[in-house]
Design a protein around this nucleic acid. Structure first.
Lengths: 115, 115
DNA sequence: CTGTATCCCCGTGGATACTG
DNA sequence: CAGTATCCACGGGGATACAG
C-alpha cells in the first residue's frame, strides 16, 4: 500500500472562484444539485431526472458531495431500502450560481434556435 | 495513425446547463475569462493575473476558447510580438454566470473567516 | 514576449456485470 | 431499490526544456 502524498491542489486556497468551483467539481454535479433544489429526492428519482448519468457516477458524486457537506444522505429502514438525499444550507448557497449557469445556457440555446 | 471515433459527448445537446458548462470547461477557464471581463489583455498580463496557471495550460485554454468563439486573438506585428485577447459578445454573455460563482465563493470564504 | 514539445499523473466518467 | 466491482479511455493539467 502506498500513501498518497501528491498534492491535489488545483487552485490556491483563498480564491473565491475556486472555493465555489471545488464544490461543483465533476461535470454532472450541477445537474444533481439542480435536481435537489426543490426538495429531498431519492436515488431512483435522481436517476430518472438525469437519465444520462450512470449509476456509478451518480453514487460517486453523491458521496463526494456528502463528504463536502453539500448534501445529506438519509437511509430509511424499509425493505427494499429507501434513501433520501437533501441539500444542506451550504448546498443551497450554491443554487444562485447554478441558476445563473442555467439562465445563460438557456439564452444561448434560444439564440441558436432563432438563427 | 489511428482515427478518433470515440464519442466525446458528456451531456446531451439541448440541455441549457451543459450548453453553458461546455464553454467553461477546464478548471482554469473561468479565471481566464474573469481576467478579460474588464477589457482586452495581453498574454503576459493574463499570466500575471493568474500566476498559478502554467503557460501551457494558459495557451491551451486560450486556443480552445478562441475556437469556441468566446474570445478573439489579435497579433500585432511588433518585435517582440504582442498578442491581445478580447472577449466576444458570446464571451461577455458568460460573465453573469461567472460573477455568480465568484459571489458565492466570496460569501463562503467570508463565512469561513468569521468562524 | 509568446508561445511549443514532451512526458507523465490523476480524476472523471462510460460500460458492464453483480449484490444485499 | 440502491448501490458495488472492474476495467478502461480520455482529457486536463503540472513540470521542464526549448523556440521564433
Amino acid at each position: 500500500m502506498v500513501l498518497k502524498v501528491r498534492k491535489t491542489v488545483k487552485a490556491p486556497p483563498g480564491c473565491p472562484m475556486s472555493k465555489c468551483m471545488d464544490l461543483l467539481r465533476g461535470c454532472w454535479t450541477p445537474e444533481v444539485l439542480w435536481s435537489l433544489s426543490e426538495g429531498p429526492r431519492r436515488f431512483s428519482e435522481l436517476r430518472r431526472d438525469n437519465p444520462f448519468i450512470s449509476a456509478k457516477v451518480m453514487t460517486t458524486r453523491l458521496r463526494d458531495l456528502e463528504q463536502l457537506g453539500v448534501l445529506t444522505r438519509h437511509v430509511m429502514p424499509t425493505s427494499p431500502p429507501t434513501v433520501e438525499y437533501e441539500l444542506t444550507d451550504l448546498g443551497r448557497e450554491l443554487l444562485p450560481a447554478i441558476r445563473s449557469i442555467v439562465e445563460v445556457g438557456t439564452r444561448l440555446l434560444l439564440r441558436d434556435s432563432n438563427l
